[in-house]
Design a protein around this nucleic acid. Structure first.
Length: 408
RNA sequence: CGGGCCGUCGUAUACCGGUAGUACGCCUGCUUUGGGAGCAGGUAGAACUGGUUCGAUUCCAGUCGGCCCGACCA
């Protein structure tokens, strides 16, 4: 990608009304654009990051045997009346009447429509277990959007739903997904803590995945080594029942990047999702749901990985692997760009004629690709300056070595 | 939804009851190129409505909008 062709440009200063680091840096770098409170456009650079996050999620979800589908955003009232949640959700769900007079809503979660859908495809114990997921936009009329892209009214969610004939199957898959979640966050570069939370519907507890950060809106209690972590909802009841480990627990703010939840038969019973068991009896399907917010994960990565000059993306989710600063504009950078591209490395080539060296370096720091390569008049023929964004000394190496190092 | 702060060119800011200025951006020309270049010229702005006033961008009220704290967040 040539920087001269990029749709967006960077801003020298952040909008004065944004205080969250993720909003300030993502806006300055041209990753996102705020339309209104809690509603952000993802610009080309932002989409590249999101797509890398989503690819990781898909790989790990597919590895559990789950299959991707794509639900509708428009939902009808009848589905929601089956569980009584049409009225119950009226504060959070965008509801309206369409031109034909039908009560319609925008999806803020998909348990009801997904359960209804599953009735068409699950009717026997032989059809179980099954798991499907989507990466979809969700709408929630949040009373207070906040913290840049961390809490919006329109946001992406990966939601996975699993269907089981018995609890043993449910518990086994639930644990499998918990492990997949830890793997996903690790690959994204987020040190997520599996956190005991209130169970709500079916089981005593659910699991949240929390990343320590001061901008987080959750409070968690944990041992120093994080071998035990619980959220504020269950802290008191664990304390009363002696469920806490010995010793002093720390209290920290954290961002919830994922949540997994056993639903039991709440939705299957309400919507008539049953299966016929071996003995011929009709039983409700046992369900669980599992969510990750890819946009929130992206914002969390920025919160954890930046300095005063800009973002420092982990290689796994960086918009480009390499930011190639071309100060010489004599064809050498272009040859390097071609070589790197052919070897499978994503390169953002700053080929601008009218930008100063300082501006190019500043933009490279701001956009935050993990490696900056510089070709300038000072650079010897056949050499290139290699500078990791995360810090450390710049080194001048042969272009061939740079290509080899980056293609690994 | 309660509380607080705030709305001035695209962005960041200044000033002022009477003419809206600066920097960056953007456009033109020339000169520049290893840490946000220089010169010259140009472009573009007071959220909306009402009130006070001879006169309001400025003061007052309402509306709309943004941020922060809290409540809320299957």
């Amino acid at each position: 990608m040539k920087l001269s062709q990029l749709f967006t440009r960077t801003l020298r200063e952040a909008p004065s009304d944004e205080t969250a680091a993720n909003a300030r840096l993502l806006t300055r770098g041209g990753f996102v654009h705020k339309v209104m409170a809690g509603v952000y456009v993802y610009l080309p650079l932002g989409v590249r990051v999101l797509e890398k996050i989503n690819r990781i999620i898909r790989e790990e979800m597919n590895a559990t045997g789950a299959q991707e589908l794509h639900m509708s955003v428009l939902q009808n009232r009848a589905t929601w009346d089956a569980t009584g949640r049409w009225d119950g959700a009226k504060d959070v769900m965008y509801q309206f009447t369409d031109a034909a007079g039908h009560a319609t809503g925008l999806g803020w979660t998909h348990e009801e429509p997904l359960t209804e859908l599953a009735r068409h495809h699950i009717s026997s114990y032989k059809d179980l277990p099954k798991a499907v997921y989507q990466i979809q936009v969700k709408f929630r009329n949040e009373p207070r959007a906040k913290s840049g892209i961390l809490r919006g009214r329109e946001f992406l969610m990966k939601d996975l739903y699993s269907f089981h004939a018995d609890e043993e199957s449910l518990n086994g898959y639930y644990e499998q997904v918990a492990q997949a979640y830890l793997k996903i966050f690790s690959r994204i570069g987020l040190p997520a803590l599996r956190t005991t939370a209130s169970g709500g519907l079916f089981s005593k507890f659910s699991d949240e995945f929390q990343v320590l950060a001061d901008v987080g809106e959750d409070t968690i209690h944990h041992t120093e080594d994080h071998s035990f972590v619980c959220n504020a909802d269950v802290y008191e009841s664990l304390k009363e029942s002696g469920g806490l480990p010995d010793g002093e627990l720390r209290q920290s703010r954290a961002i919830e990047v994922g949540n997994i939840f056993k639903l039991g038969t709440r939705f299957s019973e309400a919507l008539g999702l049953t299966f016929t068991d071996r003995d011929g009896a009709s039983r409700p399907v046992i369900m669980a749901s599992y969510g990750i917010g890819p946009g929130r994960a992206m914002g969390t990565v920025v919160e954890l990985n930046h300095d005063e000059r800009g973002i420092i993306w982990p290689a796994s989710v960086a918009p480009f692997g390499v930011h190639l600063v071309d100060l010489a504009r004599d064809g050498r950078a272009e040859r390097l760009y071609d070589e790197l591209t052919e070897s499978g490395t994503d390169v953002l080539w700053d080929d601008r004629e009218d930008a100063s060296a300082g501006e190019k370096f500043a933009d490279a720091d701001l956009i935050g690709c993990p490696v900056r390569l510089t070709v300038g008049k000072k650079t010897e023929e056949g050499k290139v300056e290699f500078q990791p964004r995360s810090g450390g000394d710049a080194e001048v190496i042969a272009t061939a070595d740079a290509v080899q190092r980056l293609s690994r």
